[in-house]
Design a protein around this nucleic acid. Structure first.
Length: 474
RNA sequence: CGCGGGGUAGAGCAGUUGGCAGCUCGCCAGGCCCAUAACCUGGAGGUCGUCGGUUCGAAUCCGACCCCCGCAACCA
């Protein structure tokens, strides 16, 4: 029976268009999903949209739409993004989907049965100037930084709380037992320190009359479930949990990827929630760095310039995929720089693999050499390649293929078959190189699926012919 | 003394059982002419953040310091 492999991205908040950072996240997840599929695993690759919470509620109200209807065009936009980036996701979940709502409520009930939910009155500081709640960390000298002359109001609200604190030790034990739970390792250290410093129970509901855009608390229509407590459940609700005999049984636990802003929610909060129900913890969480743009933080106003749709239109999907996979270090913050994108594409694809395949194909065709090859898997680099992918070091995996291209170019130049007349000799030089190109193409499928497909059919044919330029220079 | 990451060639990064400092891109010069002005060969370019210590020998181990950057409970 095929191995089961489950990977998910975070669910982006659906009040704006897709962000280049999310594009990078989903591309990385896609590469890993494709790799597992190539290895023969049955893969579920899930992503979706988070549609609850205050911001969407307000925007929807302003547009005179229901929150779900308000989100729908953005959902379409995200799905379109998958298309243009060649994302091989299998499931798409909206937190406003019926089955998700039901799963969240069931999740809540079970946490309640465990005695991990209680009601508590607490106070929030509220700035009437902003009409927003303020946390202490936001305040300057006890006042709202934007309205320093106004006294903050203290609002009393009664909400449900999750007994987060109860799971401190269990979480620490778990991290100790699974030293590779969080990638990279230093993020695991970070959360161990965080959890060690003590966990505070947190509020997991809001008053429905103030913020109705959420999942109703079972048995208490006056409250809705806090967005995070709701959204995190998507990782299992998309698999059909809590239904018996659903995909959940075979596919959970899976691997989650996220940006570094999500570290705590994914690796601490969500794990505590799973612990409460006695469900298996996530297998692994890969935490990626952030992108800057030309050295500066990507602000709302700059977002447009590197909108992933525009980037693909301006260059192409191969260039964007390759760039975020190879030039951006997976776990570090990276700078999105279009000159580097162009340079990378031209160096590795146009001058590298593209040019190599063109010269070999031309030589084979000119000399009328029959081939009829098929990929030889595993290739010599298979083990290293696999290891890099298992650690989400996608740049390393790409570097392995890149090196093979370089070596093939060197061999070809050294042997200089274009100077020879003996066809047998020429054939003996070209066939092994054609074989290498075919092998590289097989691995290339996870990075650049469409291009790899073309190469595989070109080099897998009985007679290799010079085709169109695969990677035209930018 | 809040926690964590980092400072190695113009850029991005490798480099922990200590042993002549590496890779890719970029730049310069030559070669080649099969190929997408590409490919191959060679070269220039670094006081490995600073100071001190251990050692025959330190980017690597130890100590102090300086500087950048995240996180600090809803920002991809």
């Amino acid at each position: 029976m095929a191995e089961k492999f489950y990977i998910t991205t975070t669910l982006p908040y659906t009040n704006s268009n897709p962000h280049i950072g999310f594009a990078a996240e989903i591309i990385k997840a896609d590469v890993v999903a494709r790799w597992q599929r190539l290895l023969g695993a049955e893969v579920i690759f899930s992503t979706g949209t988070d549609e609850h919470g205050l911001k969407i509620y307000q925007q929807a109200a302003a547009a005179n739409l229901s929150p779900r209807d308000y989100c729908t065009p953005f959902v379409e936009r995200f799905k379109k993004l998958h298309q243009i980036l060649e994302i091989s996701s299998t499931h798409f979940i909206r937190t406003s989907d019926e089955n998700h709502l039901a799963a969240v409520q069931e999740f809540w009930r079970r946490v309640q049965v465990k005695g991990d939910i209680y009601k508590k009155r607490y106070q929030v500081k509220y700035c009437v100037g902003c009409e927003l709640e303020k946390t202490d960390s936001e305040l300057v000298d006890g006042h709202c930084p934007w309205h320093p002359n106004r006294e903050l109001e203290i609002i009393d609200e009664e909400n449900y709380f999750f007994r987060f604190s109860k799971y401190q030790q269990a979480l620490l034990d778990f991290y100790k037992q699974q030293p590779n739970f969080v990638l990279p390792a230093h993020r695991q250290k970070e959360i161990i320190n965080f959890v060690s410093s003590g966990l505070k129970d947190f509020s997991i509901s809001r008053l429905a009359k103030k913020m109705p855009n959420g999942v109703p608390v079972p048995g208490d229509p006056e409250q809705v479930i806090y967005v995070w407590f709701d959204a995190l459940v998507n990782y299992i609700s998309v698999l059909g949990w809590p239904e018996e005999n659903s995909l959940y049984t075979d596919f959970w636990p899976g691997i989650q990827v996220c940006g570094k802003d999500n570290l705590r929610q994914q690796t601490v909060m969500w794990q505590a929630m799973l612990l409460s129900l006695g469900l298996p913890p996530t297998k692994q969480v890969a935490v990626f760095g952030f992108l800057t743009f030309n050295g500066e933080k990507i602000s709302k106003s700059k977002e447009g310039a590197i909108d992933p749709f525009l980037q693909v239109e301006k260059y192409n999907s191969d260039a964007l995929r390759l760039y975020v996979l190879s030039d951006i270090m997976p776990f570090e913050d990276g700078d999105y720089n279009e000159d580097n994108l162009i340079r990378r594409y031209n160096a590795d694809l146009a001058n590298g693999l593209g040019n190599l395949s063109a010269r070999v194909a031309t030589l084979l065709e000119k000399n009328k050499i029959a081939t009829n090859l098929s990929p030889q898997i595993p290739a010599p680099w298979h083990k290293d390649f696999n290891k890099s992918l298992n650690n989400f070091k996608l740049n390393e995996a790409w570097e392995i293929l890149s090196r093979e291209v370089r070596t093939a170019n060197e061999k070809l130049s050294a042997a200089a078959p274009w100077k020879l007349n003996n066809q047998e000799e020429i054939k003996n030089i070209l066939i092994p190189i054609a074989q290498t190109i075919l092998n590289i193409s097989w691995y290339l499928q996870i990075f650049l699926p469409a291009a790899a497909e073309k190469l595989l059919s070109q080099y897998g044919a009985a007679e290799i012919k010079k085709g169109e330029s695969l990677f035209p220079r930018l």
